[in-house]
Computed example of a mutant assay.
Amino acid sequence: MRAIDVRHQGREKVICCWEVDGVLIDPGPGVTEETLLAALGGERPRALLLTHIHFDHAGVSGSLVRRWPDLPVYVHERGAPHMVDPSRLMASAGRLYGGDEGLRELWGEMVPIPEANLRVLEGGERDVEGAFRVEYTPGHASHHVCYFHEPSRWAFVGDVGGARIPPHDFTVAPTPPPDIDVEAWKASVARVRAWDPVALGLTHFGEARPEQLDRVLAALEAQVELEGRGDEATFVATMDERIRAGCGEDAESMIQATPLDQLHMGLARWRKKLGA
């Protein structure tokens, strides 16, 4: 069990790739490929397990397949088409990051993956790579899954478990657009809890104890309440204040992992869908 800090934009404790018996869970963005390869020491991973297809979790996957053409990549069925043809994903994300140039500067290249490399998941699978169970866990994204490593009883939860920068317990629920679903997120946390894990592997960032599931639910409720009573500027200023108080010297890592304007945008979009 190894947490690999891929050091996004040179900063520690922003994005974590997990390695479990040669399997990589959420290998990170394309821009951190060299850091990841150095950590692997040139060794080919057995497989990639993607919790979801957002750039910070999955962006480097196609580049790794290009390097190792027989590398299998596990991804939910809703996300699989975008890994084969990432053009729509990149166009959508470009609107958040200042166009194609800004997108590539922040996240790097996203290389298409041949369909033959994809192992498409629905949720409910067992014995993935001989050791993992899978649950479909929407809420942060409609294509999100979590993985339970049965030998160790660790759950690898992507963004469903929230963002927490150790050693601080302060937690942010990552709520970027376009498909935040608060009620689905709560149900997904319950699915992870039903595994009775001994520990959680977070992409942002590192190991957490099971009580992190309580923290992310509390964070989600707090952010929903904050978004509902103010505009984006008020939301961003308040979240910035809370993060700096809760994360201390690691506040910039949290803000980089969970851009504050996007937290508001995702919740505002969710509220609009509800007609609230």
Rank of each mutant, 00 (worst) to 15 (best):
A222K: 04
A199E: 08
K13S: 13
A245I: 09
G275C: 09
G94T: 07
E33K: 11
H140W: 06
L48Y: 03
G206E: 07
L260K: 10
P138K: 05
W68N: 07
S63Q: 15
A38G: 09
L121Y: 01
A184L: 13
R7N: 06
G139I: 04
M265T: 10
I25K: 00
A131D: 04
L200S: 04
Q256G: 07
L103Q: 01
S152L: 11
E221S: 15
L103W: 00
D214E: 15
T51F: 01
G99E: 08
T238N: 02
Q223K: 09
G230D: 01
E77H: 13
P166H: 14
H54G: 00
Y97V: 05
G79L: 07
A58P: 03
V111W: 02
R244L: 12
E34C: 09
R67A: 09
R78V: 07
V182L: 12
G59M: 04
T51E: 03
I25G: 01
K272F: 06
L274V: 07
M83P: 02
F148W: 15
E12T: 14
D85W: 07
W68F: 14
M239L: 14
E77S: 13
A276Y: 08
P112C: 12
F235S: 00
F148I: 07
E227D: 05
A163H: 01
W68A: 08
L24R: 03
A91M: 14
Y97N: 08
V60Q: 01
L263N: 08
D231E: 13
A251K: 10
V120G: 02
Y136S: 07
E150F: 11
D214V: 14
V198C: 09
G10F: 05
R67C: 08
T234M: 12
L202T: 03
V192T: 01
A245N: 11
L106W: 06
E33A: 09
R104A: 09
D21P: 00
E43Q: 14
R193M: 08
V60T: 10
H140F: 12
T32S: 12
L260P: 01
P174M: 00
G266S: 11
V189C: 13
A93F: 09
W185D: 03
G102V: 04
Q262R: 15
F132R: 03
S87C: 08
H144P: 02
T238F: 01
Q9V: 06
A245Y: 09
A257I: 09
L106P: 01
I113W: 02
T171R: 04
D159P: 02
V134L: 06
A208D: 04
L71W: 11
R7S: 03
P259Q: 10
Y97G: 02
S253E: 06
C17M: 10
E129L: 02
V145K: 02
G130N: 06
Q262H: 15
L274G: 13
V189I: 15
R119M: 05
E115R: 15
